[in-house]
Design a protein around this nucleic acid. Structure first.
Lengths: 341, 341
DNA sequence: CTGTTAGCGCATTCAG
DNA sequence: CTGAATGCGCTAACAG
């Protein structure tokens, strides 16, 4: 490991001290000129900026974070990076936060709350400016860490009473209720709900519950609740066949995701079933594809991008502004009626 | 802002010094016990571990990174988080790197290389253990930063001569050639290539070039190259109509993405066109959906997940091991013939 | 408005 | 194998 006073070819990265020397001011003035320009005289501000520019100075954020109160790092944990919903949320967040000079550290736990705990632990040790997690289902350890955290904590994608700190999302139970009531009002007798891995996705499980709850309200027979092995489109077709086998008189199926629904539509076509005449289909997510299928998919639209924007803005509000308080926002969810149900 | 010697309710985070005190050893011993257990006697190792456990000690990674040579942070920059290809790559990388104790900082530039430069600059100031960018198309500034970087730099998703440092990907031109040759051999006379925003996506542009190059080889008429306004499924249908309008005798279309191709298939159905009899369709990406459509989509499969794994492993190899050298890997690409072409 | 002075929490010399 | 001492590069009091 080379020592810094060795003769070295690799130029050392330029430090604040050199900028100060070149600009003919003190270290502190450089620091202020860069972080709070309004607290420095115009004359020196210009000197510092010019020197920094000329030397190609880039501050060392690690050092800055150690000396300062907290780091411009925001930890965000989602179940999966490949899930289009969370990707949309992350996309919006990153656009806004990057603009404001924050960096997102992203972690995924694959619907495993033990892994979530490990990631929260790891993130906490970076002294982040904020921590964002998905949902309200955590281990006791995660809960303890998050409760003790000195930075703002946001639970997103779920709305409920008494969040740890702030929560921004919507009610998944209500989303399920929307579908259940719609099927009930549609006069269907026998229906089913297909959810991907309901045991590990508490949000999908909440939708299933809400669905069953509302559908059975008028004294109707309880829906068949079926678990699909995954969220991919291929599972949709498999699930359709299974539902029809277990409950042949099923006339309507609600899926926990649009891709499952589309897979079922493709499979229905292969089976010679027409939609919605033979079987009605409802999706969840309102992905771009929903509007394009034949016939276009009736689905439920969660506020994926709205969540991203709202979380990012809330964070920016709270970081720094001591007056900005916690928040518990329900962004709502809507039924988009198209032609499959 | 509370000072640390104030009476405070919020417990201060436990530091290494407290662990040292409780374990009855020096600070240095704690540090060594935690980072290089083999350099400490069994007896003290146990003492330190117990104390750390009991106090719930979590090291401050910011401080560690400042004192140490570099940080366990890996900067990864992709064009878009919502693009399923990059999402798959990030997913694999994060799984492997997280396991090894590294944190990914993810940035997206939305196919804007000026924004890429800003993100690279920001990431560099975190003293990362490695930097990963997508593709080989960079501003001069980015090039300068990356060339001067003291950490490993990987350009992924593209393969070419002379990368900045390491490169792991495949040849997009070759991917295009595969499609061009297939259409030529299929005996088509008039064909088209539809690419999303070709002006800003150099990889899609390379595929278009490769496509035209091979298709025209036998003296065939040059294909119509058409730019779609976006990557979403809805654009596929729009593009199909435009192609048919501009070149009514088109008998085969290659798309720069599976979702565009699927959108075109849905639109073709609405237009009463049958696939592949009236018009042949080829996708790119081999997303899950490709195998499920009616008929199943013929497409080209890039090694999305393989790239993620290979990049992560290469990084782990290189970080620390001075002996591990640069790499320039072509992971290949394959044509998946199904039923649309 | 400015410069001087102290650390931030840890990794790493160096002596023992 | 261990402990004392030093400093990573910067920010935040503080006094002028």
């Amino acid at each position: 490991m080379p020592r810094k006073d060795d003769m070295q070819l690799a130029a050392r990265r330029v430090r604040m001290e050199e900028v100060a020397r070149v600009a003919g001011v003190s270290l502190a003035t450089v620091s202020r000129a860069l972080k709070a320009p309004e607290t420095v005289s115009k004359k020196r501000l210009a000197l510092v900026r010019e020197a920094a520019e000329r030397l190609g100075y880039a501050p060392n954020r690690i050092a800055g974070s150690l000396a300062g109160t907290s780091s411009p790092l925001i930890g965000v944990i989602v179940p999966s990076l490949t899930n289009a919903f969370f990707a949309a949320t992350l996309d919006r967040m990153s656009a806004i936060l990057e603009e404001a000079g924050y960096q997102m550290m992203i972690g995924q736990h694959d619907y495993d709350i033990e892994r979530e705990e490990r990631i929260v632990t790891a993130f906490a040790s970076w002294n982040p400016a904020a921590l964002v997690v998905t949902g309200r289902d955590h281990t006791r350890g995660t809960l303890a860490l998050l409760t003790a955290a000195t930075c703002p904590v946001v639970e997103m994608w779920d709305h409920d009473e008494r969040p740890i700190d702030s929560a921004i999302g919507f009610s998944n139970r209500r989303a399920g209720q929307l579908a259940g009531r719609y099927f009930a009002e549609g006069g269907f007798e026998r229906v089913a709900f297909v959810g991907a891995i309901l045991s590990s996705d508490p949000r999908a499980a909440a939708r299933a519950e809400g669905f069953a709850e509302r559908f059975t309200e008028g004294g109707r027979q309880a829906p068949l609740i079926m678990t699909a092995a995954g969220r991919d489109i291929a599972e949709g077709g498999i699930a359709l066949r299974q539902v029809l086998q277990q409950q042949p008189d099923t006339r309507a199926i609600a899926f926990s995701g649009d891709m499952l629904a589309v897979g079922a539509m493709f499979e229905a076509a292969r089976l010679g079933l027409s939609i919605p005449e033979d079987i009605a289909i409802m999706g969840y997510g309102d992905l771009d594809i929903a509007a394009c299928t034949n016939p276009p998919l009736t689905t439920i639209r969660p506020p994926h991008e709205k969540i991203g924007k709202a979380v990012a803005k809330h964070l920016l509000d709270r970081i720094g502004h001591d007056d900005a308080g916690r928040e518990n926002l329900d962004l709502g969810v809507e039924l988009v009626v198209r032609a499959t149900a």
